[in-house]
Design a protein around this nucleic acid. Structure first.
Lengths: 187, 187
DNA sequence: TGTACATCAGTGAACGCGCGTTCACTGATGTAC
DNA sequence: TGTACATCAGTGAACGCGCGTTCACTGATGTAC
């Protein structure tokens, strides 16, 4: 039994992590397996020891987001967390720092054109994000509806801001989204 | 001077139209020049009589959206038009009918990874869409801010709805977006 | 403890398909006479 | 009016690059004795 039993899973995790970063930055098609493996410190051929094909890697990458901890912070009320999350999500840093980009706004097109598994992982991610906002409303009858609206407005603003070449328009869209999202949270 | 002077421009327009439809449906990378030309009733080679390369076609396709009439309808007040547009944008038909899909939610990733020209055309399209909503507010000081929020929420809901595999979640997101967008329009 | 061995993660050259792009050619059309 | 001609939009075979994928091999590691 050469190599410890944790060796291969750790290598795999490194590949997935590299893929997640590159995919969110440049999209599924424009990232080559060669690049992913190089970023993980490996060479091309070894890829197929871990994944059947590139699609399976994509699925694993999206899935790894969905499994990531939903930014739960101790010592904060759900409402505080929700407000903080809106700010965090719409921040300059989120827009610029590619490896931190959320696949909800970085990868929708790639996911929508892909197979069932990434779509399912992506759907989970939508649900988790909405749940953060829903938790901020104690017992409002329209909690779900409001949480949905907040997710849409945050994702929409980031999609548009990351696509426009006009930084001021992008900033303005994000400011507006922040105002309205917080307004919805205050109810 | 063989062929009438309008012959070539009309052929070009047919190619752009085919490209627009295919790109919004399947994205820039997955559509081949061969397919575009076939859909326009032509063959591969002729493409380069009209465009320098595939990037130029993409730019022309995005641009042709930006130039499209912004759904101005006579006999309707700006406010009525804005409300109708929210409903139209978030409708089942818009989500399903690929050739009618708006590039704002169908192509953001492709545009953000492309060159300057498509980004600029896309930015124009954001502006035009926001202008429809801004026109619905007579003289509110926060008209621009509200219009921006409405665009973000509509685009965000459609991005998410077109990516999830859960039709009910998608419908729910679009309903929520509709409620809040109309609320913002009523003020 | 040290050595031989078996395993299998990783290597990198090679393959082959797909697609963007090129290019020599065709043939439809308007003009000249 | 009819014929020869010039133009150039469109054709389709061919090219070549890039990238996903394969495969025979290497060499690092843990185990057996």
């Amino acid at each position: 039994m050469p190599y410890s039993p944790t060796h291969k899973p750790r290598t795999r995790a490194r590949i997935v992590s590299a893929a997640r970063e590159l995919f969110t930055l440049r999209g599924f098609e424009r990232v080559t397996i060669n690049e992913v493996m190089a970023q993980a410190g490996l060479t091309r051929g070894g890829f197929y020891n871990h994944f059947r094909d590139k699609d399976e890697l994509f699925c694993a990458a999206v899935d790894s987001y969905a499994r990531a901890t939903p930014w739960a912070e101790p010592g904060r009320t759900p409402h505080e967390l929700a407000c903080w999350f809106v700010d965090f999500y719409l921040s300059d840093g989120m827009l610029r720092r590619p490896c931190q980009q959320c696949p909800l706004f970085a990868l929708p097109a790639d996911v929508s054109r892909s197979g069932a598994a990434p779509k399912s992982a992506y759907t989970q991610l939508i649900r988790r994000t909405a749940a953060i906002f829903r938790a901020a409303f104690s017992a409002r009858p329209d909690a779900t509806e409001r949480a949905n609206a907040i997710v849409s407005i945050c994702v929409g603003a980031m999609v548009l801001a990351s696509t426009t070449d006009d930084a001021e328009l992008g900033a303005s869209l994000r400011r507006s989204a922040r105002t309205r999202a917080l307004e919805l949270l205050e109810g």
